[in-house]
Write a protein that binds this DNA or RNA. Structure first.
Lengths: 223, 223
DNA sequence: AATCAAAATTAGTCTTGCCTAAATATTGTA
DNA sequence: TACAATATTTAGGCAAGACTAATTTTGATT
């Protein structure tokens, strides 16, 4: 019984990982929103995962959940699958970064370890996916992320884009049209303290970006 | 409701297609064996598929089932996925023909039409998979198969192997070790009418093959 | 401390797809 | 033509994972 991670369980673990990545507890409501499911369903599943042996999540009523070590490994496995698949869809089948999420979402649950190993090798064991997200290593360790949100930069600070934390195809296409993709060098030239808009220079063009965008772009090596 | 073909339904349709490919009716028992499920479960599913609107199977109690036009399209779609996937696993990820079945079996249910189109294009729209099985065309037509079982050949008849109707990895590796793979030219040099063994020459080697093997190898262009 | 809204949980249902056991139908053979 | 063997169907259940409605807990505010 302890060895069967259903698709549904894998999805729960993946989203709990993402919601607790920085030490928080994941709330029932947040999980319900992420999983597109009603809160009551989340409570039910959470309780099952907590009472599994070995437990996959640690849970106290009304307090939220986190992953156990076992649950975290399982989550990282799914995330590794997802990010390798995205990378591979882009590199070998010509998908664009706005098209890969949904496909990877379905494939991530069904590929074998053999398949994972083969695409990882074929891609040269990449460490980031097409959005710049870090790919958990083969031993299921998540590499450290040094980046900060673009939103935290202020005028005269320069940086390079590391990753874009978004899946919405429309948003991704918009960002691409502005040249805001991983690896690109940018510089902040203005900040509006009322709406938190940033003016960001990419190459010779500048754009004013709202917080809902600047909080999803992560940069590094600012100066 | 009529648009949701679950994994389980796809498997039923695929196996019904295979069991009825040459005009037969598929029996409850045969289906149960193919699907690794109890006969009672087959009856239940069959009845549901027959009463769907539009019906996916045609069914009369105690008589067995066949596919309706709708069911046949759905089955061919799954089979096209499977065979394209097998081809692509072999050609781009270095899988061998004995390793692909299981992986394709899981992937076939989750890939998008977009994905199907991309791998078909990347492979140059192949018409046969690594076992030589015909791949349904994009418009869901199964090409005509002209081949006959190797078992039907007699001494002094030569032919070329078109396809091998087997998934068992051990058997596939064995056949490969004998050089009995699609495209290979063979010649029958002896027949034993009691056990139906055939002696088959491949290149400069000969092997005696039993009916359980010769009935799974299909050849063409005998003379 | 009392109140109240938001968040979470419980209780009870539903659907899908499988199972076993028991009943019934069909078939082949004597 | 009848009976045994085989096939099929019915009946009743179970597990997963979702839902709705009702209830409880929490915690923020007075």
């Amino acid at each position: 019984m302890s060895e069967l991670l259903t698709r549904s369980i894998q999805d729960y673990l993946k989203h709990i990982y993402e919601l607790t990545e920085h030490g928080q507890l994941a709330s029932t409501n947040d999980l319900a929103r992420a999983l597109q499911v009603k809160p009551a369903s989340v409570t039910g599943m959470i309780q099952k995962l907590a009472s599994d042996k070995p437990a996959l999540v640690a849970y106290q009523k009304h307090q939220g959940v986190t992953l156990t070590a076992t649950g975290k490994m399982a989550a990282l496995e799914v995330i590794r699958h997802h990010r390798l698949l995205e990378t591979w869809l882009v590199q070998t089948l010509g998908y664009t970064w706005d098209e890969v999420h949904e496909e990877a979402e379905r494939l991530e649950h069904v590929i074998s370890e053999e398949f994972e190993a083969r695409i990882a090798a074929a891609l040269g064991n990449p460490t980031r996916d097409p959005h710049g997200e870090l790919i958990p290593s083969e031993d299921l360790t998540m590499p450290a992320d040094e980046s900060t949100p673009l939103a935290s930069l202020r005028p005269n600070q320069a940086a390079s884009i590391q990753r874009v934390d978004a899946q919405d195809p429309d948003l991704l296409r918009y960002l691409e049209s502005l040249g805001l993709t991983p690896g690109v060098e940018i510089e902040v030239t203005a900040y509006s303290e009322f709406d938190h808009n940033l003016t960001v220079k990419v190459g010779r063009k500048s754009n004013v970006l709202g917080l809902s965008i600047t909080s999803k772009i992560f940069v590094e090596n600012g100066k």
